[in-house]
Simulated scan of single mutants.
Amino acid sequence: MRNLAHEGDSIAFQTVHQTNEYHQDREVVPAFEDIMDVIGSRGKFQKRLNTVFICYGTIVNVLSSQMYNFVMQTPDHWCHVPGREFTNLTLDEWKSATIPKEGGTFSKCLMYNGSALDGASEVPCQHGWEYDDTWYPLTVPSEMNWVCDDMHIVSDVMFYAQNIGAVLGLLFGYMGDMYGRRPLQLACVVMHVVSRVAMLCTPSLLPLFVVAESLGVGVAGVMLESAVSVGTELTGIRNRSCINCMACIGIPIGLVSACLCVQMFPSWKHSLLFAVLCCLILLLFCGGIN
């Protein structure tokens, strides 16, 4: 028993000795965080990168994405009945004489075939529609008259665009893993521009209009994720929470900016052109950050 114990101690001693020799001979590779501490994680490059792509980039990304939701809104509308310009009636008085009521509110799709005082019958809109521009001066549905019998077009476009965009988002995320975050960031900005320009030209071509918006939906989440990933990787551990905070602050700012743009510009086309301009400014920085 004593000999067995002595042999066991010898084996344990040899194992420890071999392990120590292994660690002495092994080259110690520094961690990425250690390298960042040496070269600096809050230098001029990181500050420019975070300011442009985390702050401004997030705002532009959300602005462009949410702008679509606003320009696809359907304002309050009613049948256009010509002849009011030859009277001194107010809008409500004219609507009371020419538009029937449904549930206490004026109908959106019916009008009187004559005067309500004469017991005229109700017929569908014969001369187009009028829209309330209090909140939305001119949107895609109000320009294209996607109301009444065509009101399903709005929900169809948004449904297909969201679903196709979700699939594209998975594809773009995979491309980012394969080719890198920086090329993906550049591609996302370019596709934002292409998407918004294509939407301006294709509202009468519904398949192309859906595909154009699908590009914007697909790159929205990927663009934010890639920017935050690069920002946190190139920032020290103690400052990474600041990167996420900057992105979270940029999201509501972008949403509020989209609301203001819709109110400022008289047409949905002007709103999308403003989004394109903001993306082009961001695109200029893509070549300047090296």
Rank of each mutant, 00 (worst) to 15 (best):
A5D: 06
D9Q: 14
D9P: 01
F13S: 13
F13D: 14
Q18T: 14
E21Q: 15
D34W: 03
D37I: 10
I39A: 10
Q46H: 15
L49C: 05
T58F: 09
V60Y: 05
N61I: 06
M67W: 13
F70Y: 13
M72K: 08
P75N: 05
G83E: 10
L89M: 02
D92V: 10
D92C: 05
S96M: 15
F106E: 05
Y112M: 14
N113A: 14
S115P: 03
L117I: 13
G119A: 04
A120L: 08
S121G: 07
E130I: 06
W135F: 12
P137E: 00
L138E: 02
V140W: 07
W146Q: 03
W146L: 04
D149A: 10
D150K: 05
M151R: 04
Y160T: 09
N163M: 14
A166Y: 06
A166C: 02
L171E: 01
G173Y: 00
M178L: 14
R181T: 02
M191H: 03
M191L: 15
P203L: 01
P203I: 05
S204R: 09
F209Q: 06
F209I: 14
V210C: 05
V210K: 00
G218I: 11
A220R: 01
A220W: 02
V222E: 00
L224C: 09
A227H: 01
S229Q: 00
G231Y: 00
T232I: 07
T235R: 06
G236V: 04
N239T: 05
R240W: 00
A247Q: 09
P252I: 01
L260P: 04
F265A: 04
H270C: 06
L272E: 04
L272F: 02
L273W: 01
A275E: 08
I281V: 14
I289H: 03
